[in-house]
Design a protein around this nucleic acid. Structure first.
Lengths: 151, 151
DNA sequence: GTGCTCCTGACCAACAAGGTCAGGAAAGTC
DNA sequence: GACTTTCCTGACCTTGTTGGTCAGGAGCAC
């Protein structure tokens, strides 16, 4: 139930690309802007490229840019590209698991967990993120003072 | 962003205890009922005991039972006991992270992610789980046909 | 005291996380 | 065509986590 460094880095780098608006940005510049180890970042960008989220060109004037418009890329797309499926249980999708005895309804709970993650991750786009104009449901969740206290 | 085997096992074992209603249940019986490796389960039950969720007695007539009423124990309690804090980013709580440049609003997103997880995990009790009477918000999330399809 | 059952630490193999290193392959510039 | 720049890729590395197993000790009931 945690967010890896890789996913966090990936989203941050993608946010920088979204802000750069289609001109290629060098890996080194992304690394500096977001304080990410360059060589690690390059591996991440490669994964994003393989997932079809980012494009790249080498050489002078080279760099990375988004393959789609910033409002067509969600945080969920990026997290899935680097971390794999969201909210798997024991490495299997929750809809495929069968529970017995008194745990029968646990499947519904894990499904609800996944659904609730999706309502956030699939609705926030990179455009939302850089502009700060998050979808209203997401803003509402983050506006609760209680959401900011540790437990 | 995944649910570990340990957390899944812990919740299932706790559900069995909730259904047993205060008489001690042997580890072996829990392991059989939920098909969990016994020795692994014993370690998990020990963690639940240290977290104050479960109590135990040794010897003949021994076993495990819930330390609190089943409607006073949430899934979040159990997940935290075995997996640690929910939705940490790079092993730190989201409210403590500072983001720069175009990723500034990412903090709000991770806070919203945690809040959305909490709305499910902190509202489902073991009593709800065993009876199948999940809270209405959770039932609503799981009722969406879309929630059951992989992506 | 003799089972029964929990309690605990040690151990283990496999894998993931979070990187670093070294070199190759395109693209542009002169 | 040489050279520089920048991405591309695989190999490697250390540390920690996951998902267990093994062996023995300690408390409880009879």
């Amino acid at each position: 139930m945690r967010v890896s460094a890789k996913a966090d880095y990936a989203v941050r780098a993608a946010a920088e690309l979204a802000a750069a608006d289609d001109d290629p940005v060098k890996g080194e510049k992304l690394a500096e802007a977001q304080d990410i180890p360059l060589q690690f970042l390059e591996h991440i960008l490669l994964e994003l490229k393989h997932a079809g989220i980012v494009r790249a060109r080498r050489g002078a004037k080279g760099g990375y840019w988004l393959a789609r418009e910033a409002d067509e890329v969600t945080i969920a797309d990026i997290v899935r590209a680097v971390e794999g499926p969201i909210a798997h249980v024991q490495s299997a999708p929750p809809e495929s698991i069968e529970y017995r005895g008194n745990a029968e309804h646990l499947q519904e709970v894990w499904i609800a967990v996944r659904a609730s993650l999706r309502t956030v991750l699939e609705h926030v786009t990179l455009a939302d993120l850089v502009s700060g104009q998050l979808p209203s449901e997401v803003k509402a969740l983050a506006a609760e003072p209680d959401a900011w206290v540790a437990r």
